[in-house]
């Protein structure tokens, strides 16, 4: 009889779950399987521009499966693709580290501030995040160009005689990447730090730890979940970033997001774009799992 009670709740529960579940299956998971499928196809002059994996030959009554591995072989044998993957991971890694180094002190300072002004400070961090990402990237174009605002200013002050080269190179790429992704680092860190029990720090001080030691042995380890969540929130999208390398990165900047975009939009090579995406997902599965784990922990308020 007990089982019948439990089951009475199920149909309603199942219906509730199924609405978002089905949506995500159809619009998020299934698309990945299609990408995987098409990465094994060949480019074709047709609409859509790729070959089918399954072909039924009526005359011979055979079903032919054509798995085209050339896209993957090409990626793994072509140094340019491999270099691009490595350089994308590198750019994402250094961007993440820079965001952490800049974002942690800011998040820490806001968390330590008087609650009365904390809201205002947090709002100031959020405000750029609420305005357009694209326009924020665009703003740096005006600042960094050879005849841009910074160079004009420095030259008119007589500090430099020739414009500094800070546009369309590694410098501008990193600068704008850090700028654009900084709020994504600050917010999870702040959310974590602000909940931290201040008596823990006082206890450490009371037991003889100096401020830096307290920070290093108490604050930092306790904000681990926030650090990991924030870092993944920067790292994962940064690997596949397209807009920033396209607008402020130079010709020497290799980013896989840009390669994927070009394969798709410029070369119309959908199977190649799919293969590039498939390999990128493989690289990102572990970071995404990490992000998922720590974000969940943070939400549930667990510290360790």
């Amino acid at each position: 009889m007990l089982r019948s009670i439990l089951e009475r709740f199920k149909p309603g529960k199942g219906a509730v779950i199924s609405v978002p579940y089905l949506w995500l299956l159809v619009f998020f998971l299934v698309p990945f399987l299609i990408v995987l499928k098409i990465s094994f196809a060949d480019q074709d002059l047709a609409i859509p521009p790729f070959t089918h994996l399954l072909k039924y030959d009526g005359d011979m009554s055979t079903l032919n499966i054509a798995l085209n591995l050339s896209n993957f072989l090409f990626i793994f044998t072509n140094e340019l693709y491999l270099d691009t993957y490595v350089s994308s991971l590198e750019v994402a890694l250094f961007t993440t580290l820079a965001c952490l180094l800049i974002g942690y002190p800011i998040a820490y300072a806001i968390a330590r501030a008087n609650p009365a002004i904390r809201n205002v400070l947090l709002m100031l961090v959020m405000l750029p995040f609420w305005t357009s990402f694209l326009l924020r990237v665009y703003a740096w174009m005006g600042l960094l160009q050879p005849n841009g605002i910074i160079n004009n200013l420095l030259m008119s002050m007589g500090l430099i005689s020739q414009p500094l080269e800070m546009f369309h190179n590694q410098f501008s790429l990193y600068l704008v990447m850090v700028y654009a992704y900084l709020p994504f680092m600050i917010l999870p860190l702040y959310a974590h730090l602000v909940k931290m029990d201040v008596t823990l720090l006082e206890a450490a001080n009371d037991l003889g730890a100096r401020p830096f030691k307290t920070f290093w042995t108490i604050t930092l380890p306790l904000s681990k979940n926030g650090i990991i969540a924030g870092s993944m929130m920067v790292f994962i999208p940064a690997v596949g970033e397209f807009v920033i390398p396209e607008l402020v990165g130079g010709p020497d900047v290799l980013m896989i997001g840009k390669v994927l975009w070009n394969e798709f939009f410029d070369n119309n090579n959908w199977p190649m774009a799919s293969a590039v995406a498939t390999i990128m997902v493989l690289f990102l599965i572990v970071p995404i799992a990490l992000f998922h784990r720590y974000e969940t922990r943070q939400l549930e308020g667990k510290n360790v």
Partner: peptide, 14 residues
């Protein structure tokens, strides 16, 4: 967190 080039491409193919 998924890079948008991936979600965009995959949904288009869907």
């Amino acid at each position: 967190v998924m890079p948008e080039v991936i979600t965009g491409l995959s949904m288009l193919l869907l």
